[in-house]
Design a protein around this nucleic acid. Structure first.
Lengths: 183, 183
DNA sequence: TAGCACATGTAATATGTTACATGATTGA
DNA sequence: TCAATCATGTAACATATTACATGTGCTA
């Protein structure tokens, strides 16, 4: 039930439409926190409205409706934020791939690790630009951007460390001859 | 379809039963990579066996069956590891909570951040002990442990940074008086 | 002989993805 | 007027969780 709390949390920042919320998910939450598509967001907003946790505060052209938190919604959000999470239930396909790399021939593993490091460097560059753009208020976007920056720096450093490990493992077994790639 | 690749990846390390795989998920993958329960693992092993990607290589008491990769299974695993992932689809409830903290009164946000930092410190301590225990081979467990160590150090540092931000935001608006907690 | 860890299985429910569907508004 | 973006909705399917269900082997 994290989707509904994610929606409540975004609406706590400012009222928004389903469309805006969908784009905020893509831009801000999807990377490290929570991923959701519009096909899940629109029905959930409907349910939240039925339950009185959000309410429609405006409508525009193209059937656009703007939602805001109700008092009940804010209370539920705060209750959830202060509660102690029971279990994580983390899902991260990139990290899963990295953990399973020993199943590849070392040369291929290195190739994938280089790719992982390069992706991290690119993300760091993008996020370095974003940081500090809006210093006026402490919004969730700033917390997310700083987390992302630190995360991707860690990703790059870990990948370098992992490449060293594969190199060292290769040197310890030089009798196996040059490693054959499967690609 | 990452679950099946996670299973193939674990079996690439060594043959295992559904029960062992379930425990490896809990101990090694669930934290950062992929979470799965036995109720999902057993049926998926059955499907993988039907499709010829894994095979039963032994059975013990209590209906225990040990699975191993087939050649097809290894090929599929390597194909997947070398393919470029399309979209992440990340899910991490702890991080989601942290990003939404601005919805709390600053005092409560700080409390939750302290909790987050403390959790990170504990994990770092545990993982510092694990690291270097099995230096003989480069197994996925070592990649995961090192990633975890670096991740939780980052978590602690980010939490400290975030606490500073909340403190600074509080000082910029001292006219609002002492912040009232909702708890 | 009781309690715990081992070991597997499945049904009902909830959540999430993919694909299909529709149409308005804006800017080149 | 064409393409892109805005804006929402839903049905079919896939994946994941929770709860229920059964029994074995070990050890104190």
């Amino acid at each position: 039930m994290s989707l509904r709390h994610a929606l409540l949390g975004l609406l706590a920042d400012h009222p928004a439409s389903g469309y805006e919320l969908t784009r905020t998910f893509e831009a801000s939450l999807a990377q490290h926190a929570w991923h959701a598509r519009h096909s899940q967001i629109y029905p959930e907003l409907g349910k939240l409205a039925d339950e009185g946790l959000v309410t429609v505060v405006g409508s525009g052209s193209r059937n656009r409706r703007t939602y805001d938190l109700t008092e009940d919604g804010r209370a539920e959000l705060q209750r959830w934020l202060l509660s102690v999470p029971d279990s994580a239930g983390v899902r991260n396909e990139s990290v899963l791939r990295m953990f399973l790399l020993p199943a590849l021939p070392p040369d291929d593993a290195r190739t994938v690790l280089e790719r992982f490091a390069a992706e991290g460097r690119e993300k760091v560059e993008v996020l370095s630009g974003i940081r500090g753009l809006d210093e006026s208020s402490l919004a969730f976007g700033q917390l997310a951007a700083e987390f992302g920056l630190r995360y991707f720096r860690m990703q790059v450093e870990w990948a370098h460390w992992a490449i060293e490990q594969f190199d060292a493992a290769g040197e310890q077994a030089p009798d196996r001859g040059p490693q054959q790639s499967t690609v």
